[in-house]
Simulated assay, not measured.
Amino acid sequence: MAVPGGRTTDLDLASARSIVERAIDKGEQLGLRGGFAVVGASGALVTASRMDRGGAGGMARARSKAWISATQQIPSFEHLQRMGFVGEQVANGFKQCSPEARFPGAGGMPIRDPSGAVVAGVAASGATVSPFFPTDIAQENMIADGKPANPEDLVVHYAMGLPYVGQHGDDHKRWEISFGPFPDDPPAGRGNDPAPVAADQPEHRWAVSLADAVMERAQAAGVLVAISVVDHRGDPVQQDVMDGAPTAATFLADGVAAAAALMQVPSHVLAGRYQEPGTLAQLAALLPVPVLASPGGLPVSVDGRVVAGLGVGGPPPHVCAEIAQDALRSLS
């Protein structure tokens, strides 16, 4: 069957990862810590990465802002302004219809292909990736083209290869809060200086290697998967979706990874532990992130201590579990 023209196309994984890696390079150069997400124009996640010590919650906020920019095809700052204009009832209705837009913050940017069509959105958030200037950062690094450049927007625009344009309102006012008056005759600044490849992200590199090992085994098995690597609290560290994988795969991988990390057992064990009717639902209501009691998630231990969870989703659950186990063995 021929595919009709005009359909929504998502950015491919390799290109999305390249944008995220540029963001991490710039973030490390500036001494920042946070997470970065790329969501396809369809609203499906493509990839997300958290820098070492990037802080819990940043990946979820970045993913939400990227979703808004990708699906609404505008900077999330513009969407935020629209929601403020239309009134509370309409804004709440938007969030109910679009639950992945639950954090409608500024800073997300649409990504366009050479024809100008939006194929994804990218955003950042985290412990120190924000629109506020850290007081201990070199001031010259926060100036781009002679203008104050807040950390979050600077990193995102650098990653996209775009000139800096602030997305969070008055950069001059935030500069004054951190540093005092902006110079009358400012230097061009070093905000746009090329960033070297990040060299101090061991957890991130490990998580990417684990995701790569999963994809290598999935490709050999002839299946398409999504991968989620989470920390021991269930917060994402690395998320990747192979091109063409089922859209549900992302949510399945997140659920089994969180189950394995939070409970420190393979994800399918939960079903046997909580057999009384309604108990699993009660458990899910207690936890800070969704969990899934199905094969595909495994705890990851270092020196006898669970430090992470690996989740694989997409194919039949038993296949996901086998791929996850093989990938973990390959890195042990």
Rank of each mutant, 00 (worst) to 15 (best):
G222I: 03
P99T: 03
R102N: 14
T250Y: 06
H79Q: 15
R7P: 01
A23V: 09
V165A: 15
V119G: 05
V20E: 10
V223M: 06
R33M: 11
Q167Y: 08
P75D: 08
L32A: 03
A159S: 09
R22Y: 09
G35A: 15
L162R: 15
G58A: 06
D25P: 06
G297V: 09
D231L: 11
V229Y: 03
A198K: 01
R174C: 00
T9G: 10
R22I: 07
M160W: 04
A281S: 14
G105W: 05
D326P: 04
S301A: 15
A198P: 00
A124L: 13
P134D: 01
D10Y: 01
V230C: 05
A258S: 13
M263C: 06
D184Q: 08
G304V: 02
S42L: 13
I74N: 01
E88V: 14
S125M: 08
S178C: 01
L262K: 02
L280D: 00
Q29R: 12
I68K: 08
K65R: 14
D170G: 13
V225E: 00
G121P: 09
S98R: 12
R190Q: 08
A259H: 02
V291M: 11
N141E: 09
G126D: 00
G57M: 01
A101D: 04
G191N: 05
S49M: 12
Q325E: 12
D240K: 01
P4A: 15
D303L: 10
A138C: 12
V122T: 02
A41D: 12
V3N: 15
V156Y: 14
V165W: 06
V165F: 03
V86K: 01
Y158Q: 05
A56W: 01
T9S: 13
E276D: 09
G278N: 01
L32R: 02
T9A: 15
D254W: 01
L154C: 10
L298W: 06
I143K: 10
Q201L: 11
G166V: 13
A16P: 02
P104E: 11
A284C: 09
P317A: 13
I177P: 01
S125P: 06
L30W: 03
Q264F: 02
L331G: 10
P186I: 04
R217F: 10
V225P: 00
A259P: 03
V223T: 03
E78S: 15
P288H: 03
L11M: 15
H172E: 14
P148F: 03
V214R: 00
R82Y: 08
A284H: 04
L270V: 01
A327V: 07
P290H: 12
V319T: 11
L80R: 04
Y164V: 04
V165S: 15
K26N: 05
G166W: 07
Q73L: 12
G54L: 06
Q275D: 12
S42R: 11
G31C: 07
A44E: 09
V241S: 01
D235Q: 10
A327N: 08
G84M: 12
A211E: 07
G296W: 05
R102P: 00
D10C: 08
G191L: 10
K95A: 13
F182G: 11
P266L: 10
R102G: 07
P288Y: 08
G6P: 05
S76V: 05
D113V: 09
K65N: 14
Q139D: 09
G161Q: 07
R33I: 04
S330G: 12
L286V: 06
P163S: 14
H204R: 14
T135M: 11
P75I: 07
V229G: 00
S294M: 13
R63W: 02
P163F: 11
